[in-house]
Design a protein around this nucleic acid. Structure first.
Length: 489
RNA sequence: CGGGGCGUGGCGCAGCUUGGCAGCGCGCCUGCUUUGGGAGCAGGAGGUCCCGGGUUCAAAUCCCGGCGCCCCGACCA
């Protein structure tokens, strides 16, 4: 029987990828459209994913010495204007508050598009001596960017994120911090979100407005388009100069601090959907899934109490894992199977009269559809193993897909053909010239996603090795090293 | 900012061309029968047809104006 018959509500990816995405986020109840353009409600199930992402990242931030804090939503216009490059970069998408308490404000307040301006202002007050360094803070908050075209999770007017901000005594320390946080993103996205990300450096053109250098982790979605999944910036001393963040060093001289900032957002939820989802809906990696498993009792009238009692006992024995017993009477087992599959729960546990006779339960994997019979008293031992297997398999699948979708190109003709016919990551040479980069973008829609970090294994490693020494894909000139191109979200 | 699509019970849509009782499917409520891949039957509730104006005996339908949402491209997490 055709698989799609079960999920009428979801458009298949092959028919219309965008519609599939919208169907998944709405039907799985991750979000709903709010009455304000470009804004969405993150519903409990979607927010549960975000909480799991926070739960994966926050301890890693703490373990590396960072502390959480909270800075105001409103930023005085004059603060934003101080750093010209930064301001120019953001002003088109800033929302302003000009009235408050029924009166016109003396100075308009920007609703933060990011908090560099506010946080740097505070840093200037807090930092006096080399003994005050490093300053390592992070905040979980919302930001607003007035986008013209929005998409649930991927680009919304208001979104949730985390922004880390640090000050250091030396350039080397700031660079090390920038790289450390990129590494943390890379590890966390790979281990917990099962995303096969490629870490690398951004080109001048693609870097953060006001940064010395920007690093990012890039992931490939199942439609062959890339998504920037996290960024880490070495801000140099640009903001320190503008906001007068000075410290008296050991040598008795006043110096500007060296800064970093880094962030990931609810956009990661979009990445999870587009990397792991299939035509039946969401597929969530166990470490991030709000629910590890759902127990679906199959309880004909006559055996109802017997089955439910056993199901409750099984549920109680799985305390410590995130398991829900779906004992709703208003839906049939088949309905529940489809519903929880659509919502991406990693494991379904079926328990019916036939299973009770055999003192077993049926465990079914969401990612592969495989089912296995497990003795009732063995489920609490088997489930964690199975979840680990699923987590691993999903990562492998994402890695293999990304690796398979990476093409090596030698010249311009090949480059255009690959982008038009296959998409995916394209590895090739780049001479380093911004005009070449610009032409490539104008003519193909593809951008340089990153200059991959050397010595870090990633799904594009093989292609990079083969591409060493290849000339620029556009002009044919000498290229210092291969880069990764793609069309991107 | 360009291109396309759409606004009709909670959701998805038909009706509009050619003006004349506001309909269908799903969902919802009640009852009974059901339960191993989206159960069946019976009864029932639910509508400013996006908004404003105009034409007309009569407007969901025709005309004018506005608003909103979604999708796709260019710019950005």
């Amino acid at each position: 029987m055709g698989e799609k018959e079960f999920v009428k509500e979801i458009t298949s990816r092959a028919v219309d990828y965008s519609q599939w995405y919208v169907d998944v986020v709405t039907r799985a109840e991750l979000m709903d459209y709010a009455p304000v353009k470009g804004c969405m409600v993150i519903r409990p199930y979607g927010y549960g994913i975000w909480e799991r992402i926070q739960g994966a990242l926050d301890p890693r931030f703490k373990a590396t010495g960072h502390e959480n804090a909270y800075f105001p939503l409103f930023i005085p216009e004059s603060f934003l204007r101080r750093e010209a490059e930064h301001f120019e970069g953001f002003v088109p998408e800033v929302a302003w508050v000009t009235r408050g308490g029924g009166e016109e404000l003396a100075e308009p307040l920007a609703i933060r598009p990011t908090s560099e301006a506010m946080i740097c202002h505070m840093f200037a007050r807090w930092v006096q001596s080399w003994r005050d360094l490093p300053v390592l803070v992070n905040q979980w908050c919302n930001v607003v960017r007035w986008e013209k075209a929005t998409r649930p999770f991927l680009r919304t007017t208001e979104f949730l994120w985390q922004e880390g901000h640090t000050c250091h005594a030396t350039e080397e320390e700031a660079e090390a911090e920038t790289r450390q946080m990129l590494g943390i993103y890379c590890d966390c996205l790979r281990e917990d979100l099962a995303l096969a990300v490629v870490p690398g450096r951004k080109t001048e053109r693609e870097k953060f407005a006001g940064a010395l250098r920007t690093y990012a982790v890039e992931a490939l979605m199942s439609d062959g388009k890339a998504l920037q999944a996290g960024t880490s910036h070495n801000l140099g001393q640009f903001f320190a100069r503008v906001f007068n963040i000075l410290f008296l060093d050991r040598d008795g001289r006043q110096k500007h601090v060296w800064q970093t900032s880094w962030g990931v957002s609810t956009r990661l939820i979009g990445a999870l959907i587009m990397v792991h989802g299939d035509d039946r809906g969401l597929v969530l990696p166990p470490r991030i899934a709000p629910l590890h498993a759902v127990i679906v009792p199959i309880s004909p009238q006559r055996r109802r109490e017997e089955v439910l009692t056993a199901a409750r006992r099984l549920h109680a024995g799985l305390a410590g894992m995130r398991v829900r017993l779906d004992d709703r009477d208003e839906h049939s087992p088949g309905w529940k199977f489809n519903e929880w599959e659509m919502r991406g729960v990693p494991v379904r546990i079926e328990l019916g009269p036939r299973d009770l006779e055999a003192s077993r339960a049926i465990l079914v994997r969401r990612d592969s559809g495989e089912r296995e019979e497990v003795p009732l008293d063995g489920v609490s031992r088997r489930l964690p193993e199975l979840l680990a297997e699923i987590q691993h398999a999903m990562y492998r699948r994402a890695w293999d897909f990304t690796s398979r979708s990476t093409r090596l190109v030698r010249d311009w003709t090949e480059f255009r053909t690959v982008l038009e016919e296959q998409r995916g990551f394209v590895v090739g040479g780049w001479c380093g010239d911004e005009d070449c980069e610009g032409h490539i973008k104008t003519e193909t829609g593809a951008t340089i996603r990153c200059l991959p970090l050397e010595g870090v294994a990633s799904p594009v490693s093989d292609a990079l090795r083969e591409a060493a020494g290849l000339p620029c894909v556009h002009c044919g000139g000498r290229a210092p090293g291969p880069v990764v191109f793609a069309r991107a979200y």
